[in-house]
Measured scan of single mutants.
Amino acid sequence: IRCIGVSNRDFVEGMSGGTWVDVVLEHGGCVTVMAQDKPTVDIELVTTTVSNMAEVRSYCYEASISDMASDSRCPTQGEAYLDKQSDTQYVCKRTLVDRGWGNGCGLFGKGSLVTCAKFTCSKKMTGKSIQPENLEYRIMLSVHGSQHSGMIVNDTGYETDENRAKVEVTPNSPRAEATLGGFGSLGLDCEPRTGLDFSDLYYLTMNNKHWLVHKEWFHDIPLPWHAGADTGTPHWNNKEALVEFKDAHAKRQTVVVLGSQEGAVHTALAGALEAEMDGAKGKLFSGHLKCRLKMDKLRLKGVSYSLCTAAFTFTKVPAETLHGTVTVEVQYAGTDGPCKIPVQMAVDMQTLTPVGRLITANPVITESTENSKMMLELDPPFGDSYIVIGVGDKKITHHWHRSGSTIGKAFEATVRGAKRMAVLGDTAWDFGSVGGVFNSLGKGIHQIFGAAFKSLFGGMSWFSQILIGTLLVWLGLNTKNGSISLTCLALGGVMIFLSTAVSA
């Protein structure tokens, strides 16, 4: 259960009878995928790494000078000259100064003066180019299975845990398959586009800190620079940016070097996208990844198990997540596992009318040892309800109150669905055939309105939902006002479609 501690969480529900669903994975976010007769899966884009970055340009932001020398000439005696002028490691300046009897010249006039100092770069920052084909995306998957609280967001041991898996995709191999043991396998067909235009970005490294910066900004930095990788004795261009020549006297000129420019660069980098280094690879934390999940090989585990009949206890007080759902960790005293956990939410304890829904599909106890633990997640209705676990006299209950409203949740879900469709863009549509167009249209309606429909009408039977949709269509056909007619027709059509397409 990876997503319960992530604030940016998206719930995606598969269409009834569908074998695939489109998701948008982004750094700092987590996606929970639910479908009829399929286990619930949490998917998170953990890291995006980039390798084989080529150094484009380096800037010196802290330097020192040494070996200063000057040469001067009297008027009419030609130009002052130093051998160091031809050495690229030196920074030199030529000027004219007033000369006369007082400073060793027989004539009054302008004399030539040249001053040089050896330039040494102490600290530099480097910009590297990123090729999209060198990106690698690491995705962690977790099935809502027989897990306890100690396994949440624990990325170790996934090789031997059938509840978890790690997959890596690249532009050259965008397809992967996550093996989930008894739950089958989940196929991923990803489109490795981060949403960032790397043709316009460089990877900047300064003092063990890293950013993504725009090329134009990078090339306009007014500091000494050299092109390409460091060859040991780089040729620094624009050395004068960190060196200041003071007022010249008759035979000498003082040279000083400016202080470190790291603070000024940090100020200019305010708002830039931060990154990290992992050995020789860069780690990015921006952008998104679009994936199509193929769920035809994914299956529920323990459908044929019998119900657990022994007593359950709450190991922890049920807690609310950031998303309005409830996490419950229970301990089973029996030894008759594997068995299914009898769990439901009810409005009252007399009729036990089921409300809400299970995020953890078909929760089971897989071990036959005593005191096995299991964590599950529920989506309670707004208002008061009861969490009921167990059967008969051994069942345990917990009162729950959820604040908020169904309308607010439906609106929030619609906005999130619209954002998801905007990110998917043209990849969500198939114009290759008439059937493809209608299929894409259905998927689009489901992406945007599916979660809201589930919130508003999830407790009704599909037949009642179709009746309401048919009534809206009838009202649309018999209303003389054009805008009201079109609105009723659209709402009725969407409702009829979703009542037959969205899983219960």
Rank of each mutant, 00 (worst) to 15 (best):
I4S: 07
G5P: 00
V6P: 00
S7N: 14
N8M: 10
R9F: 07
V12P: 01
G14P: 00
G14V: 10
M15I: 13
M15G: 01
G17I: 03
G18A: 15
T19H: 04
T19Q: 06
T19R: 02
V21K: 02
V24W: 10
L25G: 05
L25V: 11
H27T: 13
H27K: 08
G28P: 02
G28S: 15
G28T: 13
C30D: 05
V33I: 08
M34L: 14
M34P: 04
A35V: 06
A35M: 07
D37F: 07
P39F: 09
V46A: 13
T49C: 05
T49F: 01
S51E: 09
S51K: 06
A54V: 11
Y59M: 11
C60M: 10
Y61I: 10
D67N: 14
D67P: 00
A69S: 10
D71N: 13
D71V: 08
P75Y: 07
T76K: 03
Q77N: 13
G78P: 00
E79N: 10
E79C: 10
A80E: 07
Y81V: 11
Y81Q: 07
K84C: 08
K84P: 13
D87R: 03
Q89R: 10
Y90K: 10
T95A: 15
L96Q: 06
R99F: 08
R99A: 07
R99E: 08
G100F: 07
G100C: 05
W101H: 07
W101S: 03
G104P: 03
G104H: 06
G106S: 00
G106P: 02
L107S: 01
F108L: 10
K110W: 11
G111L: 01
G111V: 00
V114C: 04
V114A: 13
T115Q: 09
C121Q: 05
M125E: 05
G127C: 05
G127R: 09
S129K: 04
I130Y: 08
Q131V: 03
Q131G: 06
E133H: 05
E133K: 12
E136F: 02
Y137D: 08
R138T: 08
R138S: 05
R138G: 05
I139S: 00
I139R: 02
G145W: 11
G145H: 06
Q147T: 00
H148A: 11
H148V: 14
M151W: 05
M151Y: 15
I152N: 15
I152P: 04
G157W: 03
Y158W: 08
R164G: 08
K166N: 10
V167R: 00
V167L: 13
N172R: 00
S173H: 05
R175V: 09
R175G: 13
A176E: 11
A176G: 15
A176W: 12
T179D: 14
T179L: 04
L180P: 04
F183H: 09
F183T: 05
G184V: 04
L188R: 03
C190Q: 09
E191N: 09
P192A: 15
R193C: 03
D197S: 04
D197W: 11
D197R: 03
D200K: 03
L201S: 01
Y202K: 07
Y202G: 03
Y202L: 06
Y203N: 12
Y203L: 10
T205G: 14
N207P: 02
H210N: 12
W211G: 07
V213H: 08
V213E: 08
H214K: 08
K215Q: 15
E216F: 07
E216M: 10
H219D: 02
D220R: 03
P222Y: 09
L223Y: 09
G228I: 06
N238P: 02
K239Y: 06
L242R: 01
V243P: 00
V243Y: 04
E244F: 08
A248Y: 05
K251G: 00
R252Y: 08
R252Q: 05
T254L: 12
T254N: 09
V255H: 01
V257N: 09
L258Q: 03
E262Q: 08
E262V: 12
A264E: 08
V265P: 12
V265A: 13
H266R: 13
T267E: 05
G271K: 10
G271A: 05
A272P: 12
A272D: 12
E274V: 09
G279A: 14
A280R: 14
K281I: 14
L284N: 07
F285Q: 06
F285P: 08
S286M: 06
G287T: 15
K290H: 06
R292Q: 07
R292K: 02
R292A: 01
K294H: 07
K294V: 03
M295C: 12
D296W: 08
D296G: 11
K297I: 07
K297H: 13
R299F: 06
K301Q: 13
G302K: 05
V303M: 15
S304P: 03
Y305L: 00
Y305G: 01
Y305T: 02
S306M: 05
L307W: 14
A310Q: 11
A310M: 15
A311R: 08
T313E: 02
T313V: 15
T313S: 14
T313K: 01
K316D: 02
V317A: 11
P318D: 06
P318F: 09
A319I: 02
E320S: 12
E320Q: 08
G324E: 12
V326R: 00
T327S: 14
Y332L: 01
G337S: 10
C339Y: 13
A346S: 07
Q350K: 14
T351D: 00
T353I: 14
V355S: 15
G356W: 07
G356T: 02
R357T: 01
I359E: 06
T360Y: 05
A361Q: 06
P363L: 11
V364R: 00
I365D: 04
T369C: 05
E370A: 08
K373I: 12
L376F: 04
L378F: 13
D379T: 02
P380W: 07
G383P: 03
G383C: 04
D384P: 05
S385I: 09
Y386D: 04
I387M: 11
I389G: 05
I396F: 01
W400R: 08
R402N: 11
T406I: 12
T406F: 14
K409L: 03
A410T: 10
A410I: 11
E412P: 07
V415N: 12
G417I: 11
K419W: 08
M421K: 07
V423D: 02
L424D: 06
G425P: 03
A428K: 09
A428L: 00
W429C: 09
W429M: 10
D430Q: 08
G432K: 01
S433Y: 02
S433P: 11
S433Q: 04
G435V: 06
G436I: 02
G436Q: 01
V437F: 14
N439M: 04
N439W: 02
S440M: 11
G442S: 05
G442T: 09
G444L: 11
I445F: 05
F449M: 12
G450S: 06
A451W: 12
A452R: 03
F453E: 11
F453H: 13
K454N: 07
S455P: 12
G459R: 15
S461D: 10
W462R: 14
F463V: 15
S464C: 09
I466K: 05
I468M: 15
L472M: 12
L472W: 05
L475K: 10
G476K: 06
G476V: 06
I484W: 08
I484D: 10
L486D: 06
L486H: 04
C488L: 15
L489E: 11
V494G: 00
I496Q: 07
I496P: 03
F497W: 12
F497I: 12
L498G: 02
A501W: 10
